[in-house]
Design a protein around this nucleic acid. Structure first.
Length: 307
RNA sequence: CGCGGGAUAGAGCAGUCAGGCAGCUCGCCAGGCCCAUAACCUGGAGGUCGUCGGUUCAAAUCCGACUCCCGCAA
């Protein structure tokens, strides 16, 4: 059995951990994940999904260092690291320094949610939808010092549907990564496949998303805004401000219709709409005003000033 | 005990600060108008004002507790 240390944090990484933990070829010697954080409206302390999954899988060694430089963690990792054939990293959430990359015998293997070298960085799933890519996928690659730039071991593609949200694509890629990981990892450790360098010239990059990214810019065409809506679902979503109050736009239709200035609020067939760039209009099909439950655009229009 | 908002007719909302007839828009039902309607006109039905208790001549409104929902922050 190959000795593997797993590093990961969010829901995206859970299928990969399960796939490895239930595979007879691998022994998970430990799981490293982010510390428990305050989560939710009441600020209750919640463990990251990977911690919960690891406990369910009966993995006893779970480390949650605040920083990779914590002395206690360094002592532990320097002892166990060299006994591992590889570390597997799936959305752990921290950048690894060179000393860390040299710990396991055959390096760090990473599952990345894009078709590298496209969309290196922190939000590949969102970027693929926001930019209107026709396909996405998962890449399994070797971690090197430069972010997401290491050579690739394997890839799987998937079509992006025209109603795809970051949520649905996230879930599918999460499963695809888990399906591809065990075989790829075993083949790599057995020397059956070699990493292939990325074409640096084709690399594109995406940044960490912030709440402000979700604010609707009506100087963009409606089609782009609708893509952003899906790209930023469930967070931060597409939103706008009306009379100082935030309104989330949960579903919208872009249409071509001349007239009006970008940002003008109009109503079309009883539904709220906003003029966008290039003679386009975004119809708001489903919205959620601040402190209100989700409602249809038509319902919203009945009780709120709009025009 | 992280900060804050909300619950009123089937839907969306006003009314609460300053207690005094239960309102608006839409939908629904009936009728009218029109070549036509996602248009217009007339009439109608539909409410334990989230729950429990308190104050008061009188509570959607003031006070207390509770339930449920949501925005922000992380």
């Amino acid at each position: 059995m190959y000795r593997i240390l797993f590093l990961g944090t969010p829901e995206f990484a859970v299928p990969s951990l399960r796939a490895l933990a239930t595979d007879e070829r691998f022994e998970i010697v430990g799981v490293v994940t982010q510390p428990d954080r305050h989560v939710g409206r009441k600020g209750t302390i919640t463990p990251p999904p990977i911690k919960v999954a690891a406990q369910e899988l009966g993995i006893e060694t779970i480390k949650q260092p605040e920083k990779l430089k914590d002395e206690e963690f360094i002592t532990w990792i320097e002892e166990i690291g060299p006994t591992c054939d590889a570390f597997v990293v799936v959305a752990y959430g921290k950048i690894f320094r060179p000393w860390f990359l040299e710990l396991p015998k055959k390096g760090l293997v990473n599952v990345h949610a894009s078709l590298l070298p496209r969309w290196r960085g922190a939000s590949p799933i969102n970027a693929a939808i926001a930019e209107g890519d026709e396909k996405s996928g998962v890449s399994i690659m070797m971690i090197e010092e430069e972010m997401d730039a290491g050579p690739v071991l394997a890839m799987t593609e998937t079509e992006i549907a025209n109603n795809e949200t970051a949520q649905t694509l996230h879930d599918r890629l999460s499963t695809m990564g888990a399906d591809l990981l065990p075989m790829t990892l075993a083949d790599y450790l057995e020397g059956k496949i070699k990493p292939t360098s990325q074409n640096q010239d084709l690399a594109t990059y995406c940044k960490m998303i912030t709440r402000e990214d979700g604010k609707a810019d009506w100087n963009e065409p409606a089609e782009v805004l609708e893509r952003k809506l899906r790209a930023y679902t469930p967070w931060p979503g597409l939103w706008m401000e009306v009379d100082g109050k935030r309104i989330k736009i949960l579903a919208a239709d872009p249409i071509d219709q001349p007239g009006g200035k970008p940002g003008d609020r109009v109503s079309i067939h009883g539904e709220p709409a906003v003029i966008c760039a290039d003679q386009t209009v975004l119809i708001l099909k489903e919205v959620q005003p601040e402190n209100k439950p989700v409602m249809s655009g038509a319902d919203f229009l009945k009780g709120n000033a709009w025009n």
